[in-house]
Design a binder for these strands. Structure first.
Lengths: 259, 259
DNA sequence: GAAGCGGTTCCACATAGTGGAACTCCTCTA
DNA sequence: TAGAGGAGTTCCACTATGTGGAACCGCTTC
């Protein structure tokens, strides 16, 4: 739901940029005007201002507007700004070398889970995704780990506002079952997922605790079901725990979250 | 140099976000107020509006402002929006599998070169960088390839406004020598670089031509000098040419840029 | 050749945003 | 322990920014 602040132009900018998605990466002026309920002259002036700053770009051939590379630059700086990613990356690379699967670092952000770093295995059959990808918080090992440590009112807000849509054959869509699962995750300190978000995929993830004791990110490993064994799952959990602990210590958490 | 448009609030947003860099990822209100020459009350209102939309975030412990994850989401969408990256990625993975070095996809953007995709080799000693990283256009194989195909007035503007700073032991800093180098690159259809941007690094890159005949990106391979041989360099050039051609064809260029 | 539609520009008018002052809160020093 | 100083926060009379309908241009289609 759209937020309103005391700087209306910033609100409008967010509305404009949020119109662009994986499903619709390009808009004509008229389409966007209708989508946003803005007069074309107003929108046109706004879009050309964003173009001047490379926040948007307009393909002269089809006159369609797309997000610009300035956002990529800011996005990279955003991902780097806390230092978490920089610290986590070499540890993730070791995780990938050991598990031969893809490692993923995610954070919780506004009722969604966002990937801020990934190291992919070079195995041809693998889990692949992009930094900046966002996911529902109720499905997938990394997502469930992050949701498990949210305040109860935030969990309620997610269920109410995002819902628990069925994304794959094993997605948990019942709120009571999901809460049981989140309690189990807190108890055992890790999450496991099998075909909750993607057919043929499985993964495990553990929380990364920050200096104030809260969960700041999740680290997980994911791969295809064809390489799943229960033994590998247990090994991966232990490896993710160690990785999470090392990252916690490096970012200044007391005891690296192991109390 | 800061641009001015007819939407002053957008200009201000860019000024604010551009204050954040790798060197200074976090600012206090007072610091940023001084940096931007804005009264604290004005800036405070602006920053809290950006925070509401997760464009910025404020760490409650140190009260410092940092770029927010919303930019990461938009940045990922920006990188995906043209389809180039999606098309290029599997080809880059093959390139990495064959060369055992890191592959990089870059575009030219406002007197800078920006990385929009990378596939790193898993060799422990390697060239590593992040998507969204920006570089000077006069140094490094990928950068020089992109600069070589710019209009002359843009080359002049780069030399005049960015300059040709010495980044490493082999950076070309003389405008005449650089122009000769760019002419050579156009003639031979690839660029090579040895320790122009980073000590101990070398690389090769070739241009990717678009449907309108212009260069839309560069694809390159880079690694440490310890693994350099002239034969490998020639092999890598041929492999990058093939990769660039395949990408060109897939994005709709006639003859994939080989005329 | 004309109609229709998408994109572009202009300017009288309306709304958004300003920023100094006063305030609160926190830290440091005497 | 109290006071000073500085950072952050809020308010509102005032100023600057941005609006959007109309008219225009250019292109495509019938």
């Amino acid at each position: 739901m759209a937020k309103v602040t005391s700087v209306k132009t910033v609100d409008r900018l967010v509305a404009v940029l949020d119109s662009f998605s994986s499903e619709k990466p390009a808009w004509s002026l008229t389409e966007l005007s209708q989508q946003l309920g803005l007069p074309k002259s107003t929108l046109h002036r706004f879009l050309t201002a964003l173009e001047t700053h490379s926040i948007l770009r307009c393909d002269p051939r089809d006159k369609r507007w797309r997000l610009g590379y300035r956002l990529l630059i800011w996005g990279n700086l955003a991902a780097e700004s806390s230092g978490l990613r920089h610290i986590a990356r070499p540890i993730m690379e070791e995780l990938v070398a050991t598990t031969r699967e893809t490692a993923i670092l995610t954070v919780y952000h506004q009722q969604e889970v966002v990937c801020i770093e990934k190291v992919e295995t070079n195995h041809p059959v693998r889990m692949t995704l992009q930094v900046g990808t966002r996911r529902f918080p109720h499905a997938g090992a990394s997502s469930k780990v992050l949701m498990a440590y949210l305040p109860e009112e935030e969990v309620q807000a997610i269920i109410r506002e995002k819902g628990l849509p069925r994304l794959c054959v094993n997605t948990i869509t019942d709120p009571r079952r999901l809460r049981e699962e989140l309690a189990r995750i807190r108890e055992q300190g890790y999450a496991e997922s099998h075909e909750e978000t993607d057919l043929g995929a499985w993964g495990v993830a553990t929380p990364i605790f920050g200096p104030d004791g809260g969960v700041v990110a999740a680290i997980g490993v994911a791969g295809p079901r064809s390489r799943y064994t229960e033994q590998r799952a247990q090994e991966f959990v232990a490896l993710c725990r160690q990785a999470a602990h090392r990252i916690s210590v490096l970012i200044g958490a007391k005891q690296g979250g192991l109390e």
